[in-house]
């Protein structure tokens, strides 16, 4: 095969992997939007907060140590333990459940029956609060996230594909972290589908997503469902935070990964889990192939805007996104 074609295949494969990472972020948005009609602006910062909490718990960091030391004149930083990654992930998931409960108790509960835009504004406020709160709790320094995920190009894949091309082709480059992210994302989506199809709470969640009023009339607690949905979205944020944080370290910029999810949501639809996955894959492949083929001709750095252009094109022809529900409002 010509090397140029092999390179295009390599870019496509890496685009698919990048798309999976975008989908992970988009999933959190979809879950909350589907169940409550709220576009959760705080989803990105939830990923940051979850990753910071995970590292903090794992390393035994004293939360709010800077504040405590400033007030009490102490010199506390670490408890002196190191918790295995798996236990730390479980504990962090617990913190995200607590976070969901607090959000419901102190924010959402007071906004029942308010227009969607009010709820959206509330999540913007939540974002800024969480940014500051996370900094205060765990400090603004960059934290290395180590949960045992392998990184770097897979030598096995390179060696076993090098024969496909000429001297200028060194085999396909696939990052081991991206492979892990794909497996985790597949497991996560399977678990979410199983949960929503085969558990009482999952079915209640779907009922609320379909029709709030009808769900309430059969005795489903809206408040419980909100806590449940925000907890699941918090867990998804934790998974996204782990995958992205393993690449760049855990730092404030992690919250900006939400920007990568927006075109995915526009393309896939705000209410569809498969839409988030397919949308992510299309955006990932599309932006990488565009950068590969057209980027060098126009100076590069096309990925960010191309993703939005692609999403806008879809909006023109299918405003609800690929898998979104068509909203018909009668007057």
């Amino acid at each position: 095969m010509p090397d140029q074609l092999l390179f295009a295949i390599e870019v496509t494969l890496n685009g698919l992997m990048a798309g999976v990472l975008y989908s992970l972020v988009a999933l959190g948005f979809v879950l909350i939007f589907k169940a409550s009609g709220v576009f959760n602006y705080a989803q990105g910062v939830m990923a940051l907060f979850a990753a910071m909490t995970l590292v903090g718990i794992q390393k035994g960091q004293v939360p709010f140590s800077h504040l405590i030391n400033s007030i009490l004149g102490t010199d506390l930083h670490y408890f002196g333990w190191h918790i295995p990654a798996l236990i730390a992930i479980v504990l962090t998931a617990g913190v995200m459940v607590l976070f969901a409960w607090i959000v419901e108790r102190f924010v959402l509960k007071h906004l029942v029956n308010q227009p969607d835009i009010i709820l959206f504004m509330a999540t913007i406020g939540l974002t800024y609060f969480m940014e500051g709160f996370g900094d205060l709790m765990w400090g603004p320094d960059l934290k290395k996230l180590d949960v045992g995920l392998a990184q770097g190009g897979s030598l096995w894949i390179e060696e076993h594909t090098a024969f496909l091309g000429g001297d200028g082709f060194y085999g396909f480059f696939i990052d081991k972290l991206d492979i892990a992210a794909t497996v985790v994302a597949a497991l996560l989506v399977t678990a979410l589908i199983m949960f929503s199809q085969y558990t009482k709470q999952g079915r209640a969640m779907r009922a609320v997503a379909d029709d709030h009023q009808a769900a309430l009339s059969v005795g489903i607690s809206l408040r419980f469902i909100w806590v449940l949905v925000w907890s699941v979205a918090g867990f998804v944020a934790l998974v996204a935070g782990i995958m992205w944080g393993a690449k760049s370290g855990v730092q404030f910029s992690l919250s900006l990964i939400a920007l990568k999810a927006l075109p995915v949501l526009m393309l896939g639809g705000f209410t569809s889990i498969p839409g988030a996955i397919v949308g992510g894959l299309i955006i990932g492949v599309g932006e990488k192939l565009f950068e590969f083929s057209v980027g060098p001709l126009i100076g590069g750095a096309t990925e960010n805007w191309f993703a939005y252009v692609l999403a806008l094109l879809f909006l023109v022809f299918r405003p609800q996104g690929l898998f979104g529900e068509k909203i018909i409002e009668r007057v």
Partner: peptide
């Protein structure tokens, strides 16, 4: 020249190009 858009969280394209 290989530009990276802000914030730079995703650079797979640039480094695949460097690899090529």
């Amino acid at each position: 020249l290989l530009p990276v858009d802000h914030p730079g969280q995703e650079q797979k394209s640039q480094w695949l190009q460097i690899r090529r």
